[in-house]
Nucleic acid binder design. Structure first.
Length: 577
RNA sequence: CGGGGAGUAGCGCAGUCUGGUAGCGCGCUUGCUUCGGGAGCAAGAGGUCGGGAGUUCAAAUCUCCUCUCCCCGACCA
């Protein structure tokens, strides 16, 4: 490709709208342009990267035995009503009507459609395992799209769905995808972690996320320092402190109400009463789609709302408004407590061992001290509700947990029979019995993967593409277009490399070398061949590696083999992870 | 949907408080000179000041309404 004919509108300055590095650099490198909030066009350079990522995905999916399909983006409401998701999905689901006033939506994911295919086509256990995937545009009407391709409303996703006769089959398919995903992200050149995750709206029984490590990541990853436990913060557990057996020889003191004028926060109350935050039990009132509930947790800890929601089996869990708190407890926020409370009470395991603790008294400006479980408080259920903190102990091995930031580029789920049950996708087993198909689903954000690569690989001059997903492998830069010999050599090298299968860009623009160098750095081409007058007189050409700035001079007629060797080397290097 | 900020030339911004000729840098066009890290000089092109209504002799500037975008919070590739 010749630069002069390639649409590559680079920018010197960061666009005002961009906040994170990948968004800024994608814009500046002429890869994307915005049409509306969270909706982007891919310009030629951006599309090349997308296609590189897609190619790796296709190769690995095919290798794993999956077959590519392409499903419709517009889907009828009826199908979504069958799975209840027409109601459940909420506003992220972009709905519309066609000319006959029929309800439709733009697919945010394709479980319904693929399961519809499965229920029509799969009749026998002999037809499984089956894994179908597609690479397609999705639309999710996010409340707050941001960070360019990192969280768009319209985005390209690879989604795959596995169909098996039983759990054992699903386990196998899941493992196969797990391995394929590892290969995909390894081949893209990422440093990443696989973490246990929540299943969210997709539903199902187990799930893992593939996280590219980057400071700007939106996700917090909890990872054990010594074993391989890793989980999303929302899912992460810590080793539990067991309740002390039959009390530690301390007899509980009598319950007592104390005045705490205007002491609304844990900090206020504990300071006032001269106790530690961990000696207090926080009572948080939540509104859920199954009514109001109270959650108890130690004063120095935070509730993980996702865990609470999962435990309660609710889609929607939010901290109650002032009115609701007043209605449930009889006092304003800050004075809620479990003693005599009539709503459902769920307690985090952290309070199990506590004796003589402090709580709100459900009365304005008053707290109880010497509160004790059993005697004063009736807990409906104990559960793990806490947000894990850095330094907590690993639930598996008991060593310390650390935190990382990550970008979620892939997510795999064991769906089980959630969709096959709802949509009646069944088959006959070897005994002629009708059974539900066991499903898994597996997603990769393609655009986000490209963005994540930039977050992970860039410097102050621009993008540093890992070779496997670079839009071009090499760029040829003649330093001065007016010197015929330089241009001729550059042209010759360009043709030679092209005909040898190297993806090469020839910067044939009539601009100063500084401009060409800056742009080459910005768009992040791994190898730069500089054709300068002085070197050329000695029959030499300069090769510069974007990733480390290393430059070497090589004989003009050894360009092809050197470039090929370097490309090979960098491709191999990315496979090492 | 709350809370904060912004819409002025392709991009980045000033001008708005205190109404009166629409400006700067980059980019773009032409010419000459330059050419190994975003060149110099000269001459140009380019704007319904997001949109609508109002106040006024006069509105980018004041008032009201609206649209859009960005940032901070609720699980999502």
């Amino acid at each position: 490709m010749r630069y002069s004919q390639f649409m590559l509108p680079t920018l010197k300055e960061d666009p005002a709208e961009a906040e994170v590095i990948s968004h800024k650099l994608m814009y500046r490198a002429g890869m994307i342009r915005k049409l509306a909030a969270g909706i982007y066009s891919y310009l030629p350079l951006g599309l090349r990267v997308i296609q590189k990522v897609e190619r790796i995905i296709r190769e690995e999916m095919n290798r794993a035995g999956a077959q590519e399909v392409l499903l419709p983006c517009i889907q009828p409401a009826e199908l979504w009503m069958e799975t209840q998701r027409w109601e459940e999905y909420g506003k992220d689901l972009l709905r519309m009507k066609d000319r006959h006033d029929r309800d439709c939506c733009f697919g945010p994911t394709h479980e319904e459609v693929i399961t519809d295919i499965a229920r029509r086509e799969i009749r026998s256990y002999r037809q499984m395992p089956l894994n179908l995937y597609q690479i397609q545009t999705k639309f999710r009407d996010e409340i707050r799209p941001r960070f360019g391709l990192m969280r768009g409303r319209e985005f390209i996703m690879k989604d795959a769905y596995s169909f098996d006769a039983d759990e054992a089959g699903l386990e196998k398919s899941y493992q196969e995808m797990y391995k394929a995903y590892r290969r995909i992200f390894t081949r893209c050149g990422f440093t990443f972690k696989v973490v246990e995750a929540e299943t969210g709206l997709i539903g199902g029984t187990a799930s893992h996320e593939f996280m590219v490590l980057a400071q700007t990541g939106e996700e917090t990853i909890v990872s054990c320092q010594s074993c391989d436990y890793a989980a999303n913060i929302q899912k992460a557990e810590a080793k539990r402190t067991r309740p002390r057996a039959k009390g530690p020889g301390k007899t509980p003191n009598p319950l007592k109400k104390v005045e705490t004028p205007d002491m609304k926060t844990v900090a206020d109350v504990t300071k006032f009463l001269k106790v530690r935050p961990r000696d207090l039990v926080k009572t948080l009132i939540f509104e859920t789609d199954q009514g109001v509930a109270a959650a108890l947790i130690r004063g120095d800890r935070e509730i993980n709302q996702t865990k609470l929601g999962t435990h309660l089996g609710c889609e929607d869990v939010k901290l109650a408004s002032d009115d609701v708190v007043l209605g449930a407890t009889g006092a304003s926020k800050g004075f809620a407590g479990p003693v005599g409370l009539s709503v459902k009470i769920i307690a985090d395991y952290s309070i199990e061992p506590m004796v003589d603790f402090v709580t709100g008294a459900n009365e304005q400006d008053a707290h109880y001290i010497n509160v004790n479980l059993g005697r004063d408080v009736k807990v409906d259920q104990f559960a793990d509700l806490q947000m894990v903190r850095e330094g907590d102990l690993c639930p598996r091995c008991g060593k310390s947990l650390s935190f990382f930031r990550g970008i979620e580029v892939g997510h795999i789920f064991k769906l089980g029979t959630k969709y096959s049950k709802a949509l009646k996708a069944t088959y006959l087993d070897e005994n002629g019995r009708e059974r539900e198909i066991v499903m898994g689903c597996y997603g990769i954000g393609v655009g986000r993967t490209a963005a994540a690569a930039i977050e992970q690989y860039h410097d102050e001059d621009g993008i540093i593409w890992p070779m496997p997903i670079a839009p071009f492998q090499a760029i040829v830069v003649p330093v001065n277009n007016k010197i015929a010999a330089l241009m001729k050599t550059a042209e010759g090298i360009y043709r030679l490399l092209s005909s040898n299968g190297v993806e090469v860009l020839l910067d044939d623009r009539d601009s100063t070398p500084g401009v060409k160098f800056k742009d080459a750095d910005l768009i992040g081409i791994p190898l730069r061949l500089t054709i300068g007058e002085k070197n050329l007189k000695k029959g030499l050409v300069e090769i510069r590696r974007r990733k480390n700035g290393e430059t070497t001079l090589i004989e003009k007629d050894k360009v092809t083999e050197t470039v090929s060797a370097l490309i090979h080397e960098e491709m191999e290097a990315s496979l090492q992870g």
